[in-house]
């Protein structure tokens, strides 16, 4: 039997391959060796020079991504700021209402404005409290700034309010530091001024004086702030003057209020009824 030896040339590639694999394995193992670190450092230096021009492209791409992310964050933060501002305003208004409620001598029913129609035609406000909450027709509606209006219709859990800016609204008022009384109304000129009639010209009324309810009406308690005098005009052909008032209440931002659970003195009410009966 003859033994056939494989020639070196037949397995040349396998031998070369095995050698290369051994070199590769040696490199992999030696990679962590301290003596090899200088070679690695040199190769990293070379690659850093090669990579340097491309790093600008990478930085640019990264900057674009970062920019997009930051824009998104900015929008979210703006939204958050806007929401927080809104909450702060609401918080301020509620705190003021709370203070007013604690200092008031009357019971109050806190209400929220459900709808607000201040377009100039049949201005009215709908609130979320009605007869079930003790709200009755004629009760004044106020907020921390002053008088809002009076209740004109009540349902079980809702009521309609006649605001200052309604031609049907009337209130007996008094101007501070004087004994000037008059009737406050709105003449539908604009949604920023009310007018007081029937104040004699002999009574000097300066701009900036505060106006509040007089208490002469049985419908409203005295000293509810209403607004500030902005100008006066003598009424032609009469001895009275017209006093224009800018209300304290900002109807644009009005969202919460209180209904003053004010009940007129029964004796006064009875006297008024008897008076009306007597002149029927």
């Amino acid at each position: 039997m003859r033994i056939v030896f494989t020639k070196i040339g037949d397995i040349r590639d396998q031998l070369i391959g095995t050698g290369l694999l051994i070199i590769a394995l040696t490199l992999m193992v030696a990679r962590q060796d301290d003596a090899f670190q200088n070679v690695r450092k040199a190769s990293l230096t070379v690659i850093s020079y090669v990579e340097a021009p491309l790093s600008n492209v990478r930085v640019y791409r990264s900057a674009l991504r970062t920019n997009a992310a930051l824009e998104q964050n900015t929008i979210m933060l703006q939204d958050e700021v806007s929401r927080l501002r809104s909450l702060r305003e609401e918080n301020d208004a509620l705190r003021a209402l709370l203070d007013m409620r604690e200092n008031s001598e009357y019971d109050m029913q806190p209400v929220r404005v459900v709808t607000k129609n201040l377009t100039g035609i049949n201005n009215n406000i709908l609130i979320n409290a009605g007869s079930n909450q003790g709200v009755q027709v004629g009760m004044p509606v106020v907020n921390h700034e002053g008088l809002v209006g009076t209740v004109i219709i009540t349902a079980s859990n809702h009521a309609q309010v006649l605001p200052l800016f309604n031609r049907q609204f009337r209130a007996s008022i008094n101007i501070e530091d004087s004994r000037a009384y008059g009737i406050l109304s709105w003449e539908s000129g604009n949604l920023s001024e009310l007018v007081i009639n029937f104040v004699p010209q002999t009574i000097p009324v300066a701009d900036g004086l505060r106006v509040h309810t007089s208490g002469l009406s049985s419908q409203m308690p005295p000293n509810i702030p209403i607004g500030k005098v902005v100008r006066t005009e003598p009424e032609p052909g009469r001895e009275t003057q017209r006093i224009y008032v800018r209300p304290f209440v900002n109807f644009t931002s009005l969202a919460e209020a209180h209904v003053l659970l004010f009940h007129p003195d029964p004796e006064i009410t009875q006297l008024e009824e008897e008076w009306r009966e007597a002149f029927k």
Partner: peptide, 20 residues
């Protein structure tokens, strides 16, 4: 490639096997 990518032997090993 190993030198430039700091992989030291990995490409050499796998590409040698690939050729073989």
């Amino acid at each position: 490639l190993d030198i430039l990518t700091d992989t030291w032997g990995v490409h050499l090993f796998s590409k040698t096997l690939l050729v073989l």
